[in-house]
Simulated assay, not measured.
Amino acid sequence: MSASSNSNNYSSVVIAGASGNLGNQIVKAFLNQPNVRTHILVRNESKHKVEELIKLGAHIIEGDVTTSSVEELAQSFKGIEVIVSALSGDHSVVFDGQLKLLNAAKLSGVKKFVPSSYGFNFQDYLQLGDSLLIDPKKKLINDLQSQNQVDYLLIHNGLFYSYAFFPGFLFQKENDTIKYYGDLNVKIQLTDTLDIAKYVVEASLNPQLKNKSINVAGDEKTLEELAHLSFPQTQLKFEKLGSAQDLKNLIQKEIQQGLKPEQIGPIIYQQLQWIAISGVAHPPKTDNDLFNVKPLSLNDYVKNQKQ
């Protein structure tokens, strides 16, 4: 069933961050909805990055969340019902830029704002300070929740499938030995990017889904299962480096000693690792049953990568 088959659903949307990997997939998923007019917010100098989306039928709105004024953005959003953000970056983008989108939405009469909240459910389960990457997003949500002019929806999907296989992220491999933090039995929820896009479309267009967090997941695996999927041809030996709390303590010690610019990226990486292996942001249930999405399993994702 099409997400836009309900005549009461929203029918006009603008996506910010369309040139990114997830943003690109979200736009394509919206373009598959025949009764939805899909716009993308694009800087003039970035139009070449979205030529494929334009050919597929996306309508360009020229603008930039960092340099355009709230009033300029609001003027461009006249007649738009939903703003979906797939923005990523530093504080100036994910907080300041998205706050501009929110304020422009208020001025232009946009009915719903879906901020960039993909990944772990930081809003319900994490504290400020748990992640340098997530903190600006969490601060934005506080602003979203304190206003009552525009509906919002937070969409969380656990770990992206591709992230689970980044070298050195969940495991350190030395010969046939897998070194890890945490508990091999901890469960991690994960979702494929294509399926995240499908969930975003259905959730965004449904006026009844608003002012709350939505948790979806394509699959759920233990840390040990992920190790075997990552290194299928190896007879694995496991060596525990410490608990999840041990990893967090190491991270906090490094931060307290002061971070050089070149250390920020690795610390963000480690903080995401801690969130994954600690299970702290693992919701007790998903909202998958609210959607007409049959997600790709992680096993099938791995098979597809090998083809």
Results as ranks from 00 to 15, higher is better:
residue 206 N to K: 09
residue 178 I to Y: 01
residue 155 I to P: 04
residue 178 I to H: 00
residue 186 V to W: 07
residue 183 D to Q: 10
residue 166 F to G: 07
residue 197 A to E: 08
residue 137 K to I: 03
residue 137 K to P: 00
residue 204 S to F: 03
residue 136 P to E: 13
residue 155 I to M: 07
residue 164 A to Y: 11
residue 190 L to H: 02
residue 192 D to I: 07
residue 167 P to A: 14
residue 165 F to C: 07
residue 166 F to T: 11
residue 211 N to F: 13
residue 179 K to T: 10
residue 203 A to C: 06
residue 179 K to S: 15
residue 207 P to C: 05
residue 185 N to T: 15
residue 158 G to S: 05
residue 207 P to I: 08
residue 205 L to T: 02
residue 202 E to F: 03
residue 178 I to S: 00
residue 180 Y to Q: 04
residue 145 Q to M: 14
residue 192 D to L: 09
residue 192 D to F: 08
residue 178 I to R: 00
residue 156 H to M: 13
residue 188 I to T: 02
residue 193 T to D: 09
residue 179 K to C: 15
residue 154 L to G: 02
residue 173 K to C: 06
residue 147 Q to L: 01
residue 136 P to M: 10
residue 146 S to Q: 14
residue 171 F to D: 11
residue 183 D to V: 05
residue 160 F to I: 09
residue 141 I to R: 05
residue 158 G to Y: 02
residue 154 L to T: 01
residue 182 G to M: 05
residue 137 K to V: 03
residue 143 D to I: 10
residue 136 P to H: 11
residue 196 I to T: 03
residue 201 V to E: 01
residue 200 V to A: 13
residue 189 Q to W: 10
residue 177 T to I: 15
residue 158 G to H: 04
residue 141 I to Y: 14
residue 139 K to F: 15
residue 174 E to K: 09
residue 200 V to P: 12
residue 187 K to P: 00
residue 165 F to N: 03
residue 187 K to R: 15
residue 189 Q to H: 05
residue 162 S to F: 12
residue 207 P to F: 05
residue 177 T to Y: 04
residue 147 Q to V: 01
residue 193 T to C: 11
residue 152 Y to C: 03
residue 175 N to A: 13
residue 195 D to Y: 14
residue 173 K to V: 11
residue 141 I to G: 04
residue 159 L to K: 11
residue 182 G to S: 09
residue 135 D to K: 08
residue 196 I to E: 06
residue 164 A to D: 12
residue 144 L to I: 12
residue 152 Y to M: 11
residue 204 S to V: 06
residue 189 Q to E: 05
